[in-house]
């Protein structure tokens, strides 16, 4: 971090964390500073705090998730909140209940925080207009996944000391990726240069206006990069139209030790998970502790989410 000085930007701003797009630099830095203090705690033997004692946190997951859900679950519990996780995939929606109805029902139970994951872009924004508590976005459609970007930033800072001046490549299915969008905003905000690399059919229109350079060639896109973020190729969307085959994708866009050499010598590899080994990433490379930050990302995810819960819960 450029500054270790205590900043308190979040206090005066709206209480929801809906996306990196709505954050100021100060707010982002405040979250990262706060998160740093939790890393040690999480590694220690006594992990429990009571800053959120008496608070109720509801995790409202409309889409299946392993790491994000368990990470928020754990983060809330370590801060002393009462955490309830609801997997909505097969209950209310099938009975025809709308998101707003669900929200109003939960709101009546007086939660302090709702963490929401939803398949539709903008669902957390809609929710935040209808409830009285804090709403934290845990991923909406292909729009944003702010805590993922924040944990990625913390992971990079932890290894490289700083984000300013770094060159970061985001590679893979940019079109469908909320992780890519949130990371583009955050890394730009923190002073990094961002390249995105994808086949043309997986590159969204107008992406250059988001402050990135776009490439279709791994060699050019990775040139001089300090960090290589690989994205999951969404297998369910692979069939038919976007790409000829997984094999062809791996040939041109899969990260192999050879292709990693296009980046800087000390370049590090990240992946938000879950990984498709042999599709977007070489399996040995994914496990190479000298290069891969994947495990660290998961670890720091808990710290970042603790910071978000603490700062946003009023």
């Amino acid at each position: 971090m450029a500054t270790e000085k205590k900043v308190t930007a979040i206090k005066n701003t709206p209480k929801h964390l809906l996306g990196i797009q709505n954050l100021s630099v100060l707010e982002a830095k405040e979250i990262l500073t706060e998160a740093k203090s939790f890393i040690k705690l999480n590694r220690g033997s006594s992990k429990k705090l009571d800053v959120l004692r008496g608070k109720t946190q509801i995790n409202l997951f409309f889409e299946p998730s392993t790491r994000t859900q368990s990470s928020f679950d754990l983060a809330g519990k370590r801060l002393g909140a009462d955490v309830m996780t609801m997997n909505m995939g097969n209950s209310a929606l099938k009975k025809g209940e709308t998101l707003i109805d669900t929200a109003m029902t939960l709101n009546a139970m007086h939660p302090d925080i709702i963490v929401i994951r939803h398949q539709d872009s903008g669902a957390p924004n809609l929710l935040s207009q209808k409830v009285n508590c804090t709403v934290i976005n845990a991923g909406d459609g292909r729009r944003e996944h702010p805590t993922q970007a924040l944990l990625d930033a913390l992971t990079i800072i932890n290894r490289k000391g700083n984000i300013e001046g770094l060159k970061i490549a985001i590679c893979g299915d940019i079109l469908h990726s909320r992780v890519a969008r949130s990371n583009i905003y955050l890394m730009n905000m923190l002073g990094a240069e961002v390249n995105v690399i994808a086949p043309k059919t997986l590159m969204p229109k107008g992406i250059d206006n988001l402050g990135v350079k776009s490439f279709t060639d791994m060699k050019k896109g990775l040139d001089g990069c300090d960090i290589v973020m690989m994205l999951r190729l969404q297998n369910e969307r692979m069939q038919g139209s976007f790409l000829p085959s997984k094999r062809e994708y791996y040939e041109f866009f899969g990260l192999t030790p050879e292709k990693l050499k296009f980046a800087k010598k000390d370049a590090l590899l990240m992946h938000p998970g879950p990984m498709n080994r042999g599709v977007e990433i070489d399996t040995k490379l994914a496990d190479d502790i000298n290069v891969s930050l994947v495990k660290e990302q998961v670890e720091l995810g808990v710290a970042v989410r603790m910071a978000c819960l603490k700062l946003y819960c009023k």
Partner: peptide, 15 residues
């Protein structure tokens, strides 16, 4: 509409 706004909002655009 397809374009920057759709990309930012994470919505499926039409050309």
């Amino acid at each position: 509409n397809q374009g920057e706004v759709a990309t930012r909002l994470g919505l499926q655009g039409v050309s």
